[in-house]
Design a protein around this nucleic acid. Structure first.
Length: 260
DNA sequence: ATGCCAAGTTATACTTGA
């Protein structure tokens, strides 16, 4: 089985590329982030036409997460238990969608950005990751053999070599100690980064500005974390930087994990 | 090396993104 995660940065703007990518990538399950549309605007039929079932969660033009699968899509869950709210009045955002596909509990996650280190959005980001850690711990306590994939755009670069130049990120979000601690909290709860060992030094995101992609100046912020039972099934993983090339690309590349 | 910001809105400037 092959599982992927991809921050598509608007599904309506990218639907032709997304379909073409699916048709050449031979993936069974894809978790999308930043679909940037409401449920009724999501191009479900385009995926159904090529043999995939769809689950989508979107409330507005912001955020939005989806899972498409050709190996079943059951027990769809919108948001995880304890997920923090945001806004005035506070409401759950479209940042987490769970579904069981081919025996794997897949979570498509779009972690809050944080904006700046002194912004309330950063507090929200840290609380969101703390709550995800707690939920993840509970899932594994309930079933230590569960096959769980926590995949998506984590908006954290956990190591210095996950950005092209640490000096360029002085005082910025994504690389701060509290953000890294929050990310590693999920790892400590039992979820391993199963892509890094197969993709040393690789990035998953490159800013549209200043020729960051051709200059190879990117960030590793999209991750596939796996419970112990799932991690033991990982054969290999790749970051598909080909998909970042050309006109109309997302600023994130798909991340693909191959399972036995 | 594969190209010099992009997507959304009730818009023609602004927010968000990382």
């Amino acid at each position: 089985m092959r599982i992927a995660t991809w921050n598509v940065n608007s599904m309506r703007a990218r639907i032709d590329r997304a379909v073409a990518w699916l048709e050449r990538s031979d993936v069974d399950v894809v978790a999308f982030q930043e679909t940037k549309c409401k449920d009724e605007q999501f191009p479900t039929a385009r995926f159904e036409e090529i043999g995939y079932q769809v689950a989508h969660l979107g409330h507005s033009q912001w955020n939005g997460v989806a899972i498409v699968s050709r190996v079943g899509i059951d027990d769809v869950e919108r948001g995880f238990p304890g997920m923090p709210s945001w806004g005035d009045p506070p409401a759950a955002e479209a940042r987490a969608l769970g579904a069981t596909c081919g025996g794997v509990r897949v979570w498509s996650l779009y972690v809050p950005n944080g904006r700046t280190l002194d912004d309330p959005h950063l507090v929200y980001k840290l609380e969101w990751l703390k709550a995800l850690r707690a939920a993840g711990q509970n899932w594994l306590t309930a079933d230590p053999q569960a096959q769980i994939a926590l995949v998506g755009d984590w908006n954290v670069a956990p190591q210095d070599d996950d950005v092209w130049d640490m000096a360029a990120f002085e005082g910025s979000t994504h690389v701060s100690g509290p953000e890294r601690d929050a990310f590693n909290g999920v790892v400590d709860a039992g979820y391993a980064d199963v892509v890094r060992p197969h993709t040393p030094g690789a990035f998953t995101y490159w800013d549209y500005q200043q020729l960051r992609f051709p200059k190879r100046q990117g960030m590793r912020i999209d991750f596939a974390l796996a419970s112990p039972a799932l991690a033991s099934r990982v054969k290999t993983a790749v970051i598909d930087r080909e998909e970042r090339k050309g006109k109309g690309a997302s600023d994130h590349a798909p991340v693909i994990v191959d399972l036995t």
